[in-house]
């Protein structure tokens, strides 16, 4: 029973981990992309369509990532090339992605695909209590690897240091000779790819169908998660499991007739994010890794 519950929680948290890790890198470079929901939907519909046409969920994974990256490139073009307002551009991306995925997916409604098979690791999956950790699928295992690599990249590599410095002060980074726009461009593409993967996970693993708007707000939760994790990759993983756990807890709670209404449990991620924001914003600068130039426009000077 506990094993099954834990497995469901872990599966629910995978798309959040993927999308939030991507957004984390984007925000670390100083760009706020509110288009996560739209990119995830594009990823979901592309993954479903590709898997349905080719019969291979693996082609679906790649297509999902690429679709997310393609719309992220549009966002980058506006935000970086024309220095448009990041908040409004991100919203435009979400609205556009929701609409386009709905149109692309209209003929796909009602079809079914073969989902991604689970890869149960022998012996390890038999460990009591934590066996569920080893009954996941290739994307779930990869997501942990990506978090590890992202953490190493951001905190231990030169390129990661440059990326963070661009996010903390783009004018200084520019003055030092770093190509702010280039760094941000690649960060945004990475964020799009990851959001696309997160979206792809929904039809490939969680529910093998396409439905318009099937991400159901997960993109916004991923955004909340980045703040909740105070821009630290590993905390995203913990946060995602907590947030995923809350979703599952409601279902389990409803079945057992808990007195706490499910809606209050659903509010927890959002309220927790506000609490975290209050805690980290009031104190001194950058103790928690908040990129100081997050969401600010960068105008190139000569």
């Amino acid at each position: 029973m506990f094993d099954e519950l834990l497995l469901t929680v872990l599966l629910t948290s995978v798309p959040l981990i993927l999308a939030a890790t991507g957004e984390l890198v984007v925000e670390r470079s100083g760009v706020l992309n509110l288009g996560v929901e739209g990119m995830m939907l594009m990823g979901a519909v592309a993954a479903f369509g590709a898997a349905s046409l080719s019969g291979s969920p693996y082609i679906g994974i790649v297509s999902g990532g690429l679709a997310g990256m393609a719309v992220a490139a549009v966002f980058a073009l506006f935000v970086l090339g024309l220095a448009t307002n990041q908040v409004a551009t991100g919203l435009a991306l979400t609205i556009f992605g929701t609409g386009l995925s709905g149109l692309i997916g209209a003929p796909l409604v009602g079809q079914a695909i073969d989902g991604l098979p689970s890869m149960t690791l022998p012996l390890l999956s038999d460990i009591p209590l934590i066996g569920a950790f080893f009954k996941l699928d290739i994307m779930a295992y990869l997501s942990i690897l990506i978090v590890a690599l992202t953490s190493l990249f951001l905190m231990r590599s030169r390129a990661g240091l440059i990326l963070r410095s661009v996010g903390i002060n783009h004018d200084s980074a520019h003055a030092l000779g770093y190509n702010v726009l280039q760094v941000r461009f690649f960060a945004i593409l990475f964020g799009g790819f990851m959001a696309g993967l997160g979206g792809a996970y929904l039809p490939l693993v969680l529910t093998p169908h396409w439905a318009e708007g099937m991400t159901a707000g997960r993109g916004w939760i991923a955004l909340a998660l980045v703040v909740f994790a105070s821009w630290q990759p590993w905390r995203v993983t913990i946060g995602a499991v907590l947030f995923g756990g809350v979703t599952i807890m409601q279902l389990a709670g409803q079945a057992r007739g808990w007195t706490i209404p499910a809606q209050f449990l659903s509010m927890m991620p959002y309220l927790a994010t506000i609490v975290v924001l209050v805690t980290i914003s009031g104190r001194g600068r950058n103790v928690f890794g908040a990129p100081a130039h997050l969401g600010k426009r960068f105008f190139m000077t000569r």
């Binding site: 739209g38 435009a92 991306l93 979400t94 609205i95 556009f96 992605g97 929701t98 609409g99 386009l100 709905g102 149109l103 209209a106 318009e212 708007g213």
Partner: peptide, 10 residues
């Protein structure tokens, strides 16, 4: 679907 109008809005 109705959400397709988002293409134009976006």
């Amino acid at each position: 679907p109705k959400v397709v109008t988002g293409i134009f809005k976006g």
